Amino acid sequence: MNSASSQGFEASIAQLNDLQTLRVWSIIVSLFGDLAQNPGDQISGTTLTRIITPMGIKPEAIRVALHRLRKDGWIESARSGRASVHFLTKSGRNQSAAVTPRIYARDPKVPQSWHLLIAEEGSSHAALEDALLLPQYSQVNRCTALGYGTAPHGLDDLFVTAISDLKVPTWLQERLFPADLVLSCQSLLTVLNQISPAADLTPVQIATLRTLIVHHWRRIALRHPVLPEGFHPADWAGDACRARVFELLDLLPQPSLHALDQALAS
């Protein structure tokens, strides 16, 4: 790699780091979800460290984060010769798989049928909270949720009504797309538009950049529901941000775990 490429890589990392304070355990979850989500996939401790430390994260912080993820049932670790390897647990793989469609959908299909769930003030909130655990629901307020598709059975404690004509007031746009989410999306798009990956990046450097891009996009994609355009506030940059994320991921194709190990061995 030449000097200009190295400087460009470091500048891109610095710009992405400036977006927010990185939680190391969350970075590791994003990394495994992108690079090692399948059964049998494992990443050595050395590889993990080489991918993450360019983000300004120290090896000690990585070890602490791995300990937390093992305790929480996300990650398992084992010895392979003299080295440690890490891999997602079955629960970790299932949780990663559950959110993968939201994160990696290039052109998400907007549902055409909608319904409302309304809980009685002061009661039946448990039923509403249970419904909100399902991916098709977005909370409108303490007593109301908006869902797409057909309402599931077993919601007898809630008022359920189908919606055929959606009219969206400004206050609902702002509730579903709060100001901090809108600003985070705009900021990410600004940074992504300044990144131009060099063609001679190493597999490890590609993994570092991919992890940061996926991590920042994941935090946005999992916070906003897939809704018709009429729900979007005027300053929502979600569609443009999504398009730019995938332009960059296409320029940074996912390195294989074998390629990462080989890069470290050479």
Rank of each mutant, 00 (worst) to 15 (best):
Q136L: 02
G8A: 15
V191L: 06
A126Y: 08
K167S: 14
C143Y: 13
L19P: 03
H115L: 11
V168K: 07
G40N: 09
R70D: 09
H67R: 14
G81M: 10
V204A: 07
R82I: 06
V226C: 13
D157W: 00
K167N: 11
N2I: 08
L48H: 02
A234H: 09
C143M: 07
V24G: 05
H258F: 06
A119M: 03
L66T: 07
S44M: 07
S184P: 00
W74C: 04
S84K: 13
Q7L: 15
S6G: 06
Q254D: 10
F177W: 15
T150M: 15
G147C: 06
L132R: 14
V160G: 11
Q42S: 14
S184N: 11
W217E: 06
L249I: 00
V29D: 01
A127Q: 08
N38W: 01
Q186D: 05
L132H: 09
G45N: 09
P135L: 06
Q186L: 03
P178C: 09
I62Y: 01
R223G: 00
I163P: 08
E174N: 14
E129V: 04
E121W: 04
D239Q: 11
P225E: 09
L16Q: 08
L117Y: 12
T46M: 01
G45S: 14
E121V: 15
V85Y: 04
F246W: 09
L155I: 02
T208R: 05
V85W: 04
S91C: 00
S12W: 01
T208D: 07
C241L: 13
D157A: 14
V140L: 14
A207F: 08
G33R: 12
R223I: 00
R223S: 10
P135Q: 07
T202D: 04
H125Y: 12
L189E: 00
A237Q: 15
R244T: 10
E129I: 05
E76Y: 05
R79T: 10
G149L: 13
L31M: 15
N17Y: 00
K167R: 13
H153T: 12
L128I: 07
L128H: 01
I220Q: 05
A98G: 04
S84F: 13
E229F: 03
S138G: 01
N94D: 07
L227I: 08
D157P: 01
A4E: 15
A259M: 10
V160R: 13
D239A: 13
N17W: 00
P228S: 07
L189Q: 03
S123M: 14
S113Q: 14
G147N: 07
G238W: 00
T161A: 14
R242K: 11
H153E: 15
G149K: 13
R175D: 10
T170N: 13
Q186G: 10
W114P: 09
P255R: 05
G149I: 11
P152W: 11
S44L: 12
Q186N: 12
A127H: 03
N141M: 02
S84E: 03
V24W: 02
V140P: 00
F87A: 14
Q37E: 11
I13A: 06
